[in-house]
């Protein structure tokens, strides 16, 4: 565990908590893509099935349980508790265009053709594009609340920090996971446009507009 990996995990955790608290405190999930949140719940579920088969560390297990729990809690708040505030009309990204190709790719390109490994690969690929419904929604409505942009910033920062972690691990541990690295690069690139707007326009403004 290096500092980049740890701050990456904490950044990821911060993003998840920020979103959960935002919805809870404002009693509203307006501007949040329920579809992206379902995809993230699917990502965590398919990736962390190894909770049942292998123990890595207390840290690892704890974080996985927190991530899965928060993901389902978020989905519950959006689709059940605060369903009335859910902006379904603007959340129109066709998720099957992500899930189906990603599922096919996971079958074709993986480290090992076993159920758990294919599901892990599926989760890695799916995570890299899971934010697209959210970005699509923002581009459609043309704006995002500040707190939503903080959520996106930490969520994007997490994978960017993981990229540095992988460079570190390659040099110091000889660790190299091509699938995670390529998907991580794709994932980070998807946030670049947002990062630029967040840094240049986010300061001192109450709302962030993303040009379509």
């Amino acid at each position: 565990m290096n500092i980049f990996r740890l701050t990456g995990d904490l950044s990821h955790l911060a993003a998840i908590i920020i979103l959960l608290l935002k919805i809870w405190k404002t009693r509203s999930c307006a501007g949040i893509s329920g579809k992206s949140q379902i995809l993230f719940a699917l990502v965590f579920t398919s990736r962390y099935l190894d909770l049942l088969t292998s123990f890595i560390s207390l840290y690892n297990t704890t974080m996985k349980v927190i991530y899965i729990g928060c993901a389902y809690a978020t989905v519950y708040l959006i689709y059940a508790k605060f369903k009335a505030t859910y902006d379904g009309n603007h959340d129109t990204f066709r998720v099957e265009f992500l899930v189906v190709p990603v599922g096919g790719l996971a079958f074709l390109v993986n480290h090992d053709f076993s159920p758990l490994e294919i599901l892990w690969t599926f989760s890695i690929y799916l995570e890299s594009v899971a934010i697209l419904p959210q970005l699509f929604m923002i581009s459609k409505t043309g704006e995002a609340e500040t707190i939503t942009t903080h959520y996106l910033f930490f969520l994007g920062l997490y994978r960017a920090l993981y990229l540095i972690n992988w460079i570190w691990r390659f040099y110091f541990e000889g660790f190299f996971d091509m699938i995670a690295i390529v998907a991580g690069v794709v994932q980070t690139i998807l946030y670049c446009d947002f990062f630029y707007l967040y840094v240049t326009k986010g300061e001192g403004r109450s709302q962030l507009s993303i040009p379509t």
């Binding site: 995990d9 990821h12 560390s57 480290h111 995670a180």
Partner: peptide, 10 residues
Amino acid sequence: KADETPHDEL
């Protein structure tokens, strides 16, 4: 690979 090295990242 999965059998040799479990995925230790999150």
